[in-house]
């Protein structure tokens, strides 16, 4: 009997939860704010669904009800992707070690 592909996706999902669990526990508490902003950015990979939806319209009707929602979702996700990664970058650049030449 063949296994439903859903089971494979479910396996990936469950295993990823465990990876997430162990990886996130190893994140140092002082970086919890960047952790939130970067998880924000990566969860916006939902943009791939939005792009598929946006491109699904046929050439005569690019803006049908389905693709409009797709286009809007593209913009929302893009705000998050750019905003999330850049603000994380900005924060991480501020974390500095004690200077060696300190008196």
């Amino acid at each position: 009997m063949e296994i439903d592909p859903f089971i494979f996706r479910l396996s990936i999902f469950i295993l990823s939860i465990f990876i997430g669990y162990y990886v996130v526990w190893s994140v140092t508490p002082s970086l919890h704010t960047p952790l939130m902003s970067v998880t924000n950015a990566i969860s916006s990979v939902i943009i791939v669904g939005a792009i598929i939806a946006g491109l699904a319209g046929n050439p005569d009707s690019i803006f049908n009800s389905s693709s409009i929602f797709g286009f809007l979702a593209i913009s929302l996700a893009a705000i998050n992707i750019f905003g999330g990664f850049l603000v994380t970058q900005r924060m991480l650049a501020m974390y500095k070690k004690k200077k060696k030449d300190k008196k």
Binding site: F6, R9, G20, V24, T39, V45, V48
Partner: peptide, 20 residues
């Protein structure tokens, strides 16, 4: 949504962010 779209990147990310 990742399950709906059958997209691994989205499933993995969703699980990571969810547990985080």
């Amino acid at each position: 949504i990742g399950f709906t779209l059958e997209n691994t990147a989205l499933i993995i990310t969703g699980a990571l962010v969810g547990s985080s």
